[in-house]
Design a protein around this nucleic acid. Structure first.
Length: 429
RNA sequence: GGGUCGGUGCCCGAGUGGCCAAAGGGAGCGGACUGUAAAUCCGCCGGCUUCGCCUACGGAGGUUCGAAUCCUCCUCGGCCCA
């Protein structure tokens, strides 16, 4: 099986290499033939989010280039909690919660890789398999003996926690050993010689490489990619509103997902295309050139939204999201057919309510709150005062009475909050 | 354990008896301008039956006509000493 010799250069061109072990050796090993690499994901929630996407795609890039990849679910490490990037101790997850989270992320971990590919099928492993049965004494003798506390406390995230008043529990302090053990185990048992991760994982990865050297006498490889950050420097994974951009359609709708990327700002778009899509670099450059010719056409944003939504939610869901977007932002919602509205109701936040309120004085404001369009009646009143609400694309006054005349096809009302937030009310009982 | 300083709205952070629903900044929301962009500007930004009322400044009591502001106890945290 031959490998794509361009992979490492491609990763560099995309800005996906933050740190790596000896670059020359890395290049040699990757060019010499298929190498086996892994990325681990801890089940901290019942879904992965965009922040995890970079790592998943990293594996995908390796697989596509002919390498072997292992995606590791952190069934064991998730029980302990990685202190990296965390300013305070986290509470442990209950067994039930953990099981639920694993069940949620496993399909997502599978989704981006090909487990049937002839020659180099991907492998999914759970570190619980080789950790759960290990006795504490064995762990201390076989792993702990090789790692000095000096080395562990040198790590920034550990150090800052040690200096903070809350301190760091022995449990979280030990996390790094578990991860190092994983790497060593995979090295020995699976012939997996390389670990990748976000830049906050560098310390954990290096600890694993040290362990491999001391315990097995082997030479592990490590590579980290930059964490995806927003223009303000904060981690990606959250929308402007502070909601996490989940990969699960149930937690973050394909429409909302699509819209997130459509709204990406110009200054970010090239970086996002490079790191979050599999589009060839030259094609991205060409898209950017086209975009810069006529920025208002938002070619790059559309490209990003289409690519990413298809990748994460599939072509059908992407098409639905795109149509909904076109309907919402393309023209007047009021002219849509009943079928189109029906379709929209599955994409947009839709609230089903009773026809009783129609024509009632002062029923509109509480309805908005009940429907979750506004957080409180006060907010609804405020928005109305500020001219920020429209029904079927017509701005409505403070004393608006929702009535039969507001209904589209006898049962829908499209409520727009500001410019971008469209919800549907459905009066069907 | 002793001493000392502190816990304010989503976050940071002013406020030491009435003019405090509480300065200022950030975030967020609406509006204008645009390209569903960025930047900028304007407005809003606890709740409610909104000229007023209710809830709120770690918790519980108390002093006072009146407390985020004073007192007592509790609780949590910083720092210093042991």
């Amino acid at each position: 099986m031959s490998v794509d010799p361009e992979l490492l250069d491609d990763l560099r061109a995309r800005g996906l290499v933050q740190d790596s072990t000896d670059p020359a050796e890395l290049a040699d090993r990757m060019a010499a033939g298929p190498i086996k690499a892994y990325v681990g994901f801890d089940p901290t929630a019942d879904s992965l989010h965009v922040g995890n996407l970079v790592g998943l795609l990293m594996l995908r890039r390796f697989q596509d280039a002919g390498h072997h990849v292992i995606v590791l679910a952190g069934g064991a490490t998730g029980m302990v909690g990685d202190p990296s990037g965390k300013s305070s101790e986290r509470s442990l997850q209950s067994d039930d919660q953990l099981a639920e989270n694993i069940a949620g992320i496993l399909p997502q971990l599978r989704q981006f890789l090909d487990f049937e590919r002839p020659g180099n099928p991907a492998t999914l492993l759970d570190n619980r398999a080789w950790t759960v049965g290990m006795s504490y004494l064995d762990f201390l003798r076989d792993i702990g003996k090789y790692v000095t506390v000096n080395q562990m406390t040198a790590k920034d995230s550990v150090r800052s926690r040690m200096e903070s008043s809350d301190g760091i529990s022995y449990t979280e302090f030990s996390y790094m050993l578990l991860q190092a053990h994983d790497f060593a185990w995979l090295y020995e048992q699976e012939g997996c010689h390389m670990q990748m991760g976000g830049s906050d994982q560098w310390g954990n990865i290096v600890t694993g490489i040290d362990l491999i050297r001391k315990k097995v006498g082997g030479q592990g490889l490590g590579l980290t990619f930059p964490l995806l950050t927003k223009p303000d420097g904060t981690k990606y994974g959250k929308t402007a509103g502070g909601d996490t951009i989940w990969l699960s359609a149930a937690k973050f709708s394909p429409y909302a997902f699509y819209q997130t990327w459509i709204n990406a700002e110009d200054g970010e778009i090239e970086k996002l295309l490079l790191r979050l899509t599999l589009l060839p670099v030259e094609e991205i450059r060409a898209t950017m050139a086209e975009h810069n010719e006529a920025p208002h056409k938002r070619v790059a944003q559309t490209r990003l939204a289409v690519e990413l939504t298809s990748l994460v939610h599939g072509a059908d869901a992407m098409a639905g999201a795109r149509e909904a977007s076109a309907a919402v932002f393309g023209g007047s919602v009021a002219h849509l057919s009943e079928d189109a509205l029906e379709m929209l109701s599955s994409e947009l936040p839709t609230f089903s309510t009773s026809r009783d309120v129609l024509g009632q004085e002062a029923a509109f404001v509480p309805l908005l709150t009940e429907a979750g369009i506004t957080a409180s009646n006060s907010e609804a009143n405020r928005l109305l005062k500020q001219n920020g609400l429209s029904v079927n694309d017509v701005k409505v006054p403070v004393d608006h009475v929702i009535a039969t005349a507001d209904l589209l096809h006898g049962r829908y009302a499209a409520i727009r909050k500001g410019k971008k937030h469209l919800s549907l009310l459905r009066f069907d009982h």
